[in-house]
């Protein structure tokens, strides 16, 4: 049975996504930028750079599996990032409290999207587009449009330089002899939670059933409204965590942070093979998708491909990967 399942996995979407990943790695080996690709540091950096996107993709997968979409992830990330900086740097709040508050704020914003989609039956695209706009405005409102950094001006117009809170340094620090950043650990932890929920928990099954056929799911006694609502709330929580990591990496809270991150996160999920129509997909596929996009970016950057070229090639690869996935049907 186990063997059988493994074989089926490899001939299905997982296999296709693995091939895409191997192709990307092969590209890395060919265009290794004078051996830079074979250095451990490159891979550590790749993992560090894809972590924030990866955390967003975790929440995004749970939403997309229901046949929905969450466009607000980049903006909620920005809200969380400025809130975390504000709480930690300006208010000298305890790290644990600041983190919990930020996650609550992210979850609350995600819950609003969830209410709009599940409760009021708005189209996910519209509801989260509105949330994307609102949350971006909210981030700017909190900060007055400024970046929240260790440089601040007091009432008399004097510049004060505060010390960067330790939590910022900790999140961006490295462990295991400098081979793994804490941000990557956080990403792997979020991934594990999302995987357990989607693949092993009743809720995950419900989300997949809703994406496969919402009416059948409802008539089988599944609490469709609650399950869908929770998916958006969960995505909001993931955005908050990603925002905290982003703030730590940039050592500041930028209200402009995370712009267009939603598109990268969606691309990661879709390249893995999770269907935008819902009902098919999983965290394992998303993991492969995250690696594919993450490594592609890294390979292009170590080869000093300019941003213009990088964007064009990424667009091209996304289409190629998705076309290949379609053959699996």
């Amino acid at each position: 049975m186990t063997n059988n399942r493994f074989a089926k996995m490899m001939t299905g979407y997982t296999g296709k996504a693995l091939i895409s990943l191997l192709v990307v790695i092969l590209l890395g080996i060919i265009f290794n930028a004078d051996g830079a690709f074979f250095k451990l540091g490159t891979h550590r950096d790749a993992l560090r750079q894809l972590s924030v996107y990866g955390i967003l993709a975790c929440g995004m997968t749970l939403v997309i599996v229901t046949g929905g979409i969450d466009l607000s992830v980049g903006s909620i990330l920005a809200v969380s990032s400025v809130c975390f900086s504000l709480f930690s740097i300006h208010y000298d709040m305890a790290p644990a409290l600041a983190i919990i508050l930020c996650i609550l704020i992210g979850t609350a914003l995600g819950s609003v999207s969830g209410t709009l989609v599940a409760g009021l039956k708005l189209q996910p695209f519209i509801a989260t587009l509105a949330m994307m706009t609102f949350a971006r405005g909210f981030a700017k409102y909190i900060t007055g449009g400024q970046k929240i950094s260790t440089y601040l001006t007091d009432a008399d117009g004097n510049v004060i330089i505060k010390e960067l809170p330790q939590i910022f340094q900790f999140i961006d620090s490295r462990i295991f002899g400098g081979n793994l950043t804490i941000v990557s650990v956080i990403f792997l932890f979020c991934f594990l939670i999302a995987w357990v929920l989607l693949a092993r928990h009743k809720w995950g099954r419900e989300l997949i059933a809703i994406g496969g056929n919402e009416e059948s799911a409802r008539l089988s006694g599944i609490p469709v409204v609650l399950s869908k609502f929770a998916a958006y709330a969960f995505s909001g929580a993931m955005c908050a965590i990603a925002g905290i990591c982003q703030a730590a990496q940039e050592t500041q809270g930028d209200p402009e942070a995370g712009a267009s991150y939603e598109l990268t996160a969606i691309a990661m999920v879709v390249i893995g093979g999770t269907s935008l129509a819902g009902g098919r997909g999983g965290m394992g596929l998303t993991f492969l998708g995250i690696l594919i996009i993450g490594y592609l970016e890294k390979i292009l950057s170590i080869n000093a491909v300019p941003e213009s070229g990088r964007l064009m090639i990424t667009g091209f690869i996304i289409i190629l990967a998705v076309l290949m996935q379609r053959k699996a049907d």
């Binding site: 099954r205 059933a209 496969g212 056929n213 008539l219 089988s220 009902g279």
Partner: peptide
């Protein structure tokens, strides 16, 4: 239209209403 979740496996369709 509203009896089965077609892309889901037979097993998961059978246990869908009694998963608890």
């Amino acid at each position: 239209a509203d009896g089965l979740v077609l892309p889901m496996s037979i097993t998961h369709n059978i246990t869908l209403a009694s998963l608890k």
